[in-house]
Amino acid sequence: MEDIEAFAQRLMSAEGSTREDYLQALEYLDIAVCEALAVGQAQAGRMAAPCVGYGTYLFARMCSHGVAAVRAVPFSRWVQSDHQEWGFNVLACHARALLEGNLYFHYFMQPTNDELDEGRARVTLLQLNDCTSRLKMFNGVDEQRVWYEQQRLELQERLRSIPYFQNLPPAVQSQCLAGKKAWFLDRAQLVELIGMDKAGFDILWDLWSQHSHIHPVSFLRMEPNGRGTGLECDPDRIYLAMAMVVSAGILGDATDKIVEVFPDVAGERKGLDSKFRPGPKRNRRR
């Protein structure tokens, strides 16, 4: 099978894609999902540093979106159907989630500065953001609101006591204490962290966001019996193929990182024959 990077470059330079290109992209995604699930299940339940532990939670969410993606696209072996839906919207939201989740996954898997207690700061900030979000959702429920308000105060105080946080610019500290940030890095810094071109990231983010929502780009160029109608057409087929290849690359890189941290699970990566449950019959453990 053609190298995934070479295949992606060929797709990007092409004006359209054939059914064969689409099926090859689907196989790349299928392999990536299978290997990610097998490796993820093999490392589950391990003791790890807190940041790595949260990184494995993020990896699990990425695997979930990977499964949803490979089940949503036409001609997937994961689903039996007498109808194929070719609208790019079936995949856009899951591809976008993987693009975003990949930033946060690598952020938590990065080494921390133990002298400044950076790992504890990362986890505390994450918990504070979660607490603040839940407080907004349950603001009308007195019992929940009182509990989350108390927890928020405790987390803010804990964050203020950590040397890593104390060394941050005052403006960043203010945003963090308000619960507006879940990560100390902004998006540009996170994109740089994973080594991705920011302009390329932004194009994918905007395109996939437009199709995840019902925004103008998702419907202004709909064509009778063509783009955006759910029927097979060149624009949606190439959008689907590119999103599958990028998603496969993201899952593959994340799986590499899990194997780097837990090297004993490397043998679980067996392509389409990787074993996990639940899943297609071919992949179930016996």
Rank of each mutant, 00 (worst) to 15 (best):
F201Y: 15
F201M: 03
D202G: 12
D202I: 09
I203C: 11
I203V: 13
W205A: 08
W205Y: 15
W205Q: 11
D206K: 13
D206I: 09
L207I: 07
W208I: 03
W208P: 00
S209P: 02
Q210H: 14
Q210F: 08
Q210T: 10
H211C: 08
H211W: 07
S212F: 08
S212C: 12
H213R: 09
I214A: 14
I214P: 05
H215Q: 15
P216C: 11
S218P: 04
F219L: 10
F219G: 12
L220I: 15
R221H: 14
R221M: 14
M222S: 14
P224F: 04
P224W: 03
P224E: 07
N225H: 14
G226H: 09
T229E: 11
T229R: 10
T229C: 01
L231A: 13
C233N: 15
C233F: 01
D234T: 12
D234E: 15
D234P: 13
D234H: 12
P235G: 02
P235K: 04
P235H: 09
D236H: 01
D236E: 04
I238L: 11
Y239G: 12
L240P: 03
A241E: 04
A241Y: 06
A241L: 06
M242V: 12
A243M: 01
M244R: 03
V245T: 10
V245Q: 00
V245I: 04
A248K: 06
A248Q: 02
A248F: 00
I250P: 06
L251H: 01
L251Y: 01
G252R: 07
G252D: 09
D253A: 12
D253T: 10
D253W: 02
A254S: 13
A254G: 05
A254Y: 08
A254Q: 09
T255S: 07
T255P: 06
T255A: 10
D256V: 00
K257M: 07
I258H: 05
E260F: 11
P263Q: 06
P263W: 01
D264T: 07
V265D: 02
G267I: 02
G267F: 05
E268M: 11
R269C: 05
R269K: 12
R269H: 05
L272G: 10
D273Y: 14
